[in-house]
Design a binder for these strands. Structure first.
Lengths: 219, 219
DNA sequence: GTTTAAATTAAACAACTGTTTAATTGTGAT
DNA sequence: ATCACAATTAAACAGTTGTTTAATTTAAAC
């Protein structure tokens, strides 16, 4: 049955989500301060008052953009960490794969996330993003420490090892043009949807982290 | 002899440089769009017209901030690369040390640099920053490739290896609070002036890159 | 059809933006 | 003292900002 109320409700959600989607693009491209509500309203083809009607303010829209993704961001790492059937190095490999997959799937959002890590202007948002990162750091650090305890890993710096993993991906994600230079591709190419690109990054990080972590038994 | 003209000239330079110094701090903290000329003028204790008087515009001030440091940014890598008396791994170690030293010495500027890499709003500035990064990438990649050619290095991904080096430092530099969490220090601590912090980062990266690059000869 | 409430709109709001102007001050050379 | 010019200032400029208002439209419930 065609229920007009459901249709309307869906349209309404779509409109809100449409605004959020466009906002994500603009924030990623121009930054938070660089994006005006009028820009956003025009690109999303809605009235400028709708942003405040739906979200209350520009800053709250931004907060909701982050909050909406945060739940999903945390879930994977927690799932991997609590999976008892995986060895420590398998967990690390899963986390690397998960990070790259997630970041490549939502490059726009990730750039917004990085901006907020970089700019301390909006203190509470900055703290929020920071605390999320710290949670992830703690999880991965405890995995590496367990590997060291089991004498499977070298006595490395666990915190900085995690930072190298995330830092590598972030550095790659910082600019589309940079990715295309890496892939020797043309400027209009979209590297984030290129499976070869994804494979290349995952293999590099895993290879490097393996060499860094795993104790080579002299035969 | 006390020459009033020299004094004035010095004062004048000092005033310009004073504005640039304060601008660097504000841009790093609030971003380019987030920093208003009135903010800057107030914090630097100058008239708001002085910025346009000295630099022409806010954007030109920003460009000059970058341009002023760029020369110094390139010099070290080029010097290391052309130094014939160094082995490939020594060159890499020097570059790692140089990067960390430079970035820790000018954390404010570096955050501005990263912001410009992240935000594509000011296209020409973005391209400029990008091309600088590509130059450095090419230099380091050619060092790694030479190491591979000489069968001293494993057949790694040279581009992504460089990105891991820079990415690790950038990730650390992204937030002062993050550094303090790493060092288990209090919030008001300045990690960028802590020699222990510097040592820890350099040792981690060098250790990781060594494991990643150097072929372990089975004895 | 009437009612009720949500959705949508154009217009106005006050505050802030980067920049320019025109007047004034300070300084060194003549 | 006078001149020329750089430095400095407060004020005004035109445009944009995020947000609010008050009016209008839409659509479901009765």
């Amino acid at each position: 049955m065609f229920d007009i109320r459901v249709f309307i409700a869906l349209m309404s959600v779509d409109k809100k989500e449409h605004i959020m989607h466009v906002a994500m693009e603009l924030f990623a491209e121009k930054g938070f301060e660089g994006t005006s509500i009028r820009d956003l309203a025009q690109k999303a083809d809605v009235n400028i008052a709708m942003v405040n009607y739906y979200f209350g303010s520009k800053e709250k829209l931004f907060e909701q953009l982050l909050a909406d993704k945060v739940q999903f961001m945390r879930a994977k790492i927690e799932a991997v960490e609590s999976n008892e059937s995986l060895t420590e190095i398998e967990k690390i490999d899963h986390i690397i794969d998960g990070y790259v997959t997630r970041f490549l799937a939502q490059p726009d959002f990730h750039r917004v996330f990085l901006q907020e890590l970089l700019v301390t202007q909006r203190a509470n948002l900055h703290q929020h993003v920071l605390s999320l990162f710290e949670k992830n750091t703690r999880d991965v650090v405890s995995i590496i420490e367990k590997g060291i305890q089991k004498k499977q890993f070298k006595k490395v710096d666990p915190q900085l090892t995690f930072i190298s993993i995330v830092g590598t991906i972030n550095q790659v994600m910082m600019s589309k043009e940079m990715c295309n230079t890496l892939m020797h591709a043309s400027t209009n190419h979209n590297p984030y949807q290129d499976p070869k690109f994804k494979k290349r990054i995952i293999e590099h990080i895993q290879q490097m982290v393996h060499a860094h972590l795993i104790i080579t038994t002299v035969s």
